[in-house]
Simulated scan of single mutants.
Amino acid sequence: MVAKASANTPENQLVVDALRQLIRRLNEATGLIVSAERNYSLNLLRWARERLHATPWQKVLPARSSTILRRETEHRLRKRQTGNQAAYGRLAIWYGQWTFDATLASPDLADRMVDLMLAFPAGEFFADRVFEVWCLNQVIESFRRIGAVTVEGPRLLWQRAGRSICTLRFEEYTFDVWFQKSLPSSSARWRYVHSGNALKGIPDITLIGEDSRYLVIDAKNRKSYGATRPEETYKMLGYLENFRGTFQQYPFWGALCFLSDDDLFTEVGTEGGNRLVLLGAHDNDPKVCALGGRMDTLLSEWLSLRRTEGLLASAPVPQIIM
């Protein structure tokens, strides 16, 4: 009997099966808004498709379930039968992490779960995004505490393309909570000379009421040691300057959220009702963190100025929770 060399080994079948799963998941994520994450996903999708149509993967056909293929691959690795122990060993480790289901984990897998959590990127970009999402959750929870109810959502972040994270209603007043939504470029005053394109503004969180009132919030994952933050404050006021048309009918309301251990709360205002509030979230002790209460107060006051169908709302002022 003469053995024939074949690429259709269990480990290669596992590679093809993993690529197919990856392509399916990336296809589901193509609705992401234009961002670095979306570009990376599209590049990865293109790479995976090219690999599937390249030699030798185009000739490999998975004949068993992924669970069996993974088990057979690990067995062949132990027997040193793969021909490339290092590469297929890394594949087996990656596949185990990628398909790990924490809901089915037993207590003895706690250390493994910790390792997977620590595998998330530890750079500033990831920490900044976590703080932004945390502030988004604080806003939604604040509205719920003061009596608003959910009409639609909340949606997952990757589902937000062209849609708000959620739609809420207080009494008869409906408003949307957006995450990283561009302010209307049609109202931008500043433009690039070489292209004529508008200078964009993308707050982290934007509230838009049915009466077209705005409240913009930026989350800054930075430690504040004083009562003022001039650099970030001027950036926030840049929204008012550049998009003055958007804030022409109603006063500009904004908030900046920082990390702070001294209960940061500073308010900046002008004649005409323009208002900017600096809030601090305690970065070590959630028991003394006052951001939630401060946010409740700010959002309650914003709702108290609501207009329904062009008239001042006759509904009672929402309760301010401290």
Rank of each mutant, 00 (worst) to 15 (best):
residue 229 R to A: 14
residue 220 K to S: 10
residue 221 N to Y: 02
residue 193 V to Q: 01
residue 175 F to V: 15
residue 245 G to Q: 11
residue 188 A to R: 02
residue 178 W to Q: 06
residue 200 K to I: 15
residue 180 Q to N: 15
residue 195 S to H: 03
residue 195 S to V: 03
residue 174 T to D: 04
residue 203 P to S: 03
residue 207 L to E: 06
residue 239 Y to G: 01
residue 195 S to F: 02
residue 217 I to L: 08
residue 195 S to W: 03
residue 196 G to T: 04
residue 218 D to K: 13
residue 194 H to E: 09
residue 232 E to G: 03
residue 207 L to W: 08
residue 220 K to P: 15
residue 185 S to Q: 13
residue 226 G to E: 10
residue 240 L to F: 10
residue 236 M to Y: 02
residue 202 I to T: 13
residue 205 I to C: 10
residue 232 E to S: 03
residue 232 E to C: 01
residue 243 F to T: 04
residue 187 S to A: 09
residue 216 V to K: 01
residue 179 F to K: 11
residue 242 N to L: 14
residue 222 R to Q: 07
residue 187 S to H: 13
residue 204 D to F: 08
residue 226 G to L: 10
residue 233 T to R: 00
residue 231 E to W: 13
residue 199 L to I: 15
residue 213 R to T: 13
residue 209 G to A: 05
residue 207 L to Y: 07
residue 180 Q to E: 12
residue 173 Y to N: 05
residue 202 I to M: 07
residue 228 T to Q: 14
residue 236 M to L: 12
residue 181 K to V: 11
residue 246 T to V: 03
residue 244 R to F: 03
residue 188 A to S: 06
residue 208 I to H: 09
residue 194 H to F: 10
residue 230 P to T: 00
residue 217 I to S: 00
residue 186 S to Q: 12
residue 180 Q to K: 14
residue 245 G to Y: 11
residue 227 A to K: 12
residue 196 G to E: 05
residue 187 S to C: 09
residue 208 I to C: 09
residue 244 R to Q: 04
residue 244 R to T: 03
residue 233 T to S: 00
residue 223 K to G: 09
residue 189 R to S: 04
residue 176 D to A: 14
residue 174 T to S: 09
residue 229 R to T: 14
residue 212 S to A: 14
residue 180 Q to T: 15
residue 172 E to C: 08
residue 203 P to A: 00
residue 238 G to Y: 09
residue 223 K to C: 11
residue 172 E to D: 05
residue 213 R to F: 11
residue 216 V to C: 05
residue 238 G to K: 12
residue 186 S to M: 09
residue 217 I to C: 02
residue 171 E to R: 09
residue 180 Q to S: 14
residue 196 G to W: 08
residue 196 G to R: 06
residue 175 F to P: 02
residue 199 L to P: 13
residue 224 S to L: 04
residue 193 V to S: 01
residue 195 S to P: 00
residue 213 R to V: 10
residue 176 D to C: 11
residue 227 A to P: 15
residue 220 K to I: 08
residue 208 I to M: 10
residue 210 E to I: 11
residue 192 Y to F: 08
residue 229 R to C: 13
residue 190 W to Y: 09
residue 198 A to M: 06
residue 229 R to E: 12
residue 209 G to F: 00
residue 197 N to P: 15
residue 179 F to V: 11
residue 191 R to Q: 12
residue 212 S to R: 14
residue 219 A to T: 04
residue 187 S to I: 10
residue 172 E to K: 04
residue 173 Y to F: 11
residue 206 T to L: 11
residue 218 D to V: 08
residue 231 E to D: 15
residue 175 F to S: 04
residue 177 V to Y: 00
residue 184 P to C: 10
residue 201 G to A: 06
residue 192 Y to T: 04
residue 214 Y to D: 02
residue 217 I to H: 00
residue 192 Y to S: 08
residue 230 P to M: 01
residue 222 R to C: 07
residue 226 G to A: 12
residue 225 Y to S: 08
residue 180 Q to I: 09
residue 246 T to Y: 01
residue 219 A to Q: 05
residue 209 G to R: 04
residue 180 Q to G: 14
residue 197 N to L: 12
residue 207 L to R: 07
residue 239 Y to H: 00
residue 174 T to E: 03
residue 227 A to Y: 11
residue 224 S to M: 06
residue 192 Y to W: 07
residue 199 L to T: 14
residue 184 P to T: 07
residue 235 K to I: 14
residue 221 N to P: 09
residue 203 P to D: 01
residue 183 L to W: 02
residue 228 T to E: 09
residue 196 G to N: 05
